[in-house]
Amino acid sequence: MADTNTEVAHTATDVATAHGADMAHGAEAGGASMPQLDPSTYSNQIFWLLVTLVVIYFVLSRIALPRIAAVLAERSGTITNDIAAAEELKLKATEAEATYNKALADARAEAARIVADTKAQIQSDLDVEIAKADEVIAAKTAEGAKAIDEIRANAVASVEEVAKDTAGAIVAALGGTADQAVIDAEVAEQMKG
C-alpha cells in the first residue's frame, strides 16, 4: 500500500498537490513527510507573506506609529508641563511661607519694640510725675512747717501779751500800780525761763 502511495506521489506530483492530504500521507509512507518541505506551495506563501508585510508596514508607518508617537509625545509633554507647574506652585508656596514667617517675625519684633517703648515711656512719665509729686510734697511740707512756725511764733507772742495783760491786771487788782515796762521785762524774763 505504501508503494502505491509513493508511486502516486512520484508519478503525479502536480495532481498530488490538488489532493494535498493524500499526497502528504503518501509522502509520509515514502519517508519524506513534512508539508513544509513541499516546494509547490512556496510561491504562494511567499507572495502572500510579502503582501501581508507590506500591508502591515503601511498600516503602521502611515497610521498607527505617527499616531502613537504623537500621543506619547503629547502625554510626556503634558506630564512635563504638569510637573513644571507643580514645581512652580511648590516654589510659590515655599516663598509664601517664607514671607509669612518673615511677616510673623517682624510683627513679633514690632510688638516687642512697642511693649518696650511703652514700658520706657510709662517709666519716664512715672519718674517725671513722681519727681513732680515729690516737689509738690516738699513744697507743701515746707509751707506747712512755715505755717507751724508762724503759728508757734504767734502763739508765743499771744501768750506773752496775755501774760503781760494778765500780770498788769493782777497787779492792778492787788492794788498796786505797776509800771508797764517793769511788767513787760518781768514777763519776758519769766517766758524765757
Binding site: 498537490t17 494535498g20 506551495t41
Partner: peptide, 16 residues
C-alpha cells in the same frame, strides 16, 4: 504534520 499543509480554500486545483 497534516496541520502544516497549505491548502487552497476556494478551489480544488493546485496551489498556485
Amino acid at each position: 504534520l497534516d496541520q502544516f499543509e497549505v491548502k487552497s480554500l476556494f478551489s480544488d486545483g493546485p496551489v498556485n
